[in-house]
Design a protein around this nucleic acid. Structure first.
Lengths: 156, 156
DNA sequence: ATATAAAACTTTAAGCTTGAAATATCTTGC
DNA sequence: GCAAGATATTTCAAGCTTAAAGTTTTATAT
């Protein structure tokens, strides 16, 4: 899946395969760098950062199923990550009166403060790592990926 | 990290952050789909496929460290995946005379045959999933990502 | 009312992943 | 030759990940 130096054979349909391989390598390269920095600088992980980023933008809280859908990961997965964040006091579960199956998950004040610090560093890292991509290319690329996403969502 | 429907605030440097978010969501979406199909159709996993794809292009075999570098994953990780592939008869470790710390890892005949079948389906899936990306856009996007990669490699 | 289904979430087992520590082998400097 | 360091790999603990099965609660259809 992650092909590298060796060329993909040419032929019909190979352009898209090559695109996929580059896409995957680029995102894995950046992800690996971010993971390492999050660990070194803030002693945290990418999945934790993802969950906190989602919650940061939803001050009223999110359901577990919302988090799972939003982050594109399984629901069982979110349970474990949130459990750990709760045990560290960064996130809180609030039982709801209406539907007792669910609970609203939100950042604590400490979690919110902590995330704001990390997010600022994170944005700087992205600027650095993608610094060589011109603003114009960045916008064009974003546009292409956005239209891919729209097509995808119509798909299923 | 994986932001979605909600917009990223505007401001200087936000274009690259937005690009990263789209990039990550696109690759995660495709990865999830491929993982599911590999499981359903061939009862295998993405990491296994990655390892076999790398070995398929190196008939003479690869060292564990080569695999690890090529796939952008840790060396301890590769050990486990190769162990399982060996136990299923798809991959073989061959001790070398020269350096007894290392062993050449290669596909068995069965592994090679198995991979060829899966790879054909995989290429078809990519064509389908990225079908809405025009050939021209695919080539342009690939070019941008390639230049990102070159810059990156100069970086470290 | 009450069975049945649906929904939200957790638990479980298996596998993936990392970073660090441990093991074994090779290389180098003396 | 041999100690010291470098290299290649495995082992380990902790955490991430999925799919499937289980639990609790809510909604629906008789």
């Amino acid at each position: 899946m992650v092909a590298g130096p060796l060329p993909v054979p040419s032929g019909p349909g190979k352009d898209r395969l090559r695109l996929w391989i580059r896409l995957l390598r680029a995102s894995r390269t950046i992800e690996a760098e971010l993971r390492e920095r999050l660990k070194k600088e803030f002693d945290t992980t990418l999945p934790r950062f993802d969950v906190m980023a989602a919650l940061y933008r939803a001050p009223e809280g999110m359901l577990m199923s919302d988090l799972s859908r939003f982050l594109l990961v399984s629901n069982g997965n979110v349970t474990g990550i949130v459990d750990r964040l709760v045990s560290e006091g960064l996130v809180a579960r609030a039982r709801r009166n209406g539907d007792r199956r669910t609970s609203m998950v939100r950042l604590t004040d400490e979690g919110s403060k902590s995330f704001a610090t990390i997010a600022a560093a994170h944005e700087g890292w992205i600027g650095e790592l993608l610094g060589k991509v011109s603003e114009e290319d960045a916008r064009r690329l974003t546009g292409m990926l956005t239209s891919f996403r729209s097509n995808w969502e119509g798909r299923e």
